[in-house]
Amino acid sequence: MRAVPQAALLLFALLTAPLARAETLFPPVPKEFRIFKDKVVELKNLPPVRDQDGVNACGIFSTASLLEFHRCRVKRIPCRNTKVDERISALQLASLDEAAGSPGIHEKVGPREILETIAKNRTRLVPEKCAPFDQLLATIRLDGEEVKLDQVRGMNVLRDLYQDSRSNHSCEACVQKLQTTLANQFGAVGKQLQADLPRLAEALRQASFEEFAYRLLIPPHCLAKAEPPPPFERHSYPATVNDKADKKVFRDILVGNLKRGLASEATLCVQPDKTKGCGLSHSVLVVGSREMCGLKGCRLSFKIQNSWGKTWQEKNEDGWIDGEWLLDRMMMGSVGAPGTPDRVAMNWIR
């Protein structure tokens, strides 16, 4: 008779074992801690929440939001009143990596490189209507797999076309082929693009696919009309990729920035990896902090704006997460693979 409950218990333990081992991403502060009202700092006038879709380039989204917040703050305009078409194009930010040597769409570009390029060159930032990321994704989505910016199905089609044009055809024939492809496979965005023959020809003349994609997807007339963001000083911690990070410094900078009304971009590790240091990192904006206290003392909580859409914010207490967890994951995110330099894990502008 006693064997039955034991077997049931064993079965229950086996079924629930994976749950017990599972770790929650972005956990909240444990429930026994309550908000200490006097120690809440929460930035207002934030831009609307973005969703990066399946594109593995979170840094361009968090940086776009950081720049929008800076623009609204300096110009004293309500961020929510910005027309959707006037928001900063995340697609353009992916092209702002000076180290790459030439303009091009690069998936790997990080917040530090983007902000450095803009601060140095006073780069004009094109609005979403000129280089439409959502629309482009809606048109050229890869079915069945998570996408990387340069692996979106449409990008692959374009890459094949570009490479083909470099080797096999006269330019007239390749422009026509590009026109047909855009008209047939790229929906409304493609139809607009295919009518601009000089731009297509110019794009195909570029020396690399990244430059070709840049010329094709970010119209020069938009760059000419666009405005640079209000001037800013760029800061990073660690200051260079060769410096070691310190958890206490992370905490002090995040809290100090918030007290001055500044948001910070934070890169953290969402998938620790024993061999690589971090298997997958993610970038978010830190927009609030509060102290929460209970019987076991007090604990810090940070509010983040994630690029995983509004529902994610809602189901995670509007982005309030455990501060210790965030700081630990920023430490993990700042450590490169063994033998490689550490990474810059946070950026801010003022």
Partner: peptide, 27 residues
């Protein structure tokens, strides 16, 4: 990179980004 996005694709869907009345994007 986006867990909900990846799960949608895994179970046979494709992702559509919607914009709500407050201009926030929803997946």
């Amino acid at each position: 990179a986006h867990p909900a996005d990846a799960f949608c694709v895994k179970v046979g869907g494709s992702v559509v980004l919607l914009r709500d009345a407050e201009k926030d994007q929803r997946n």
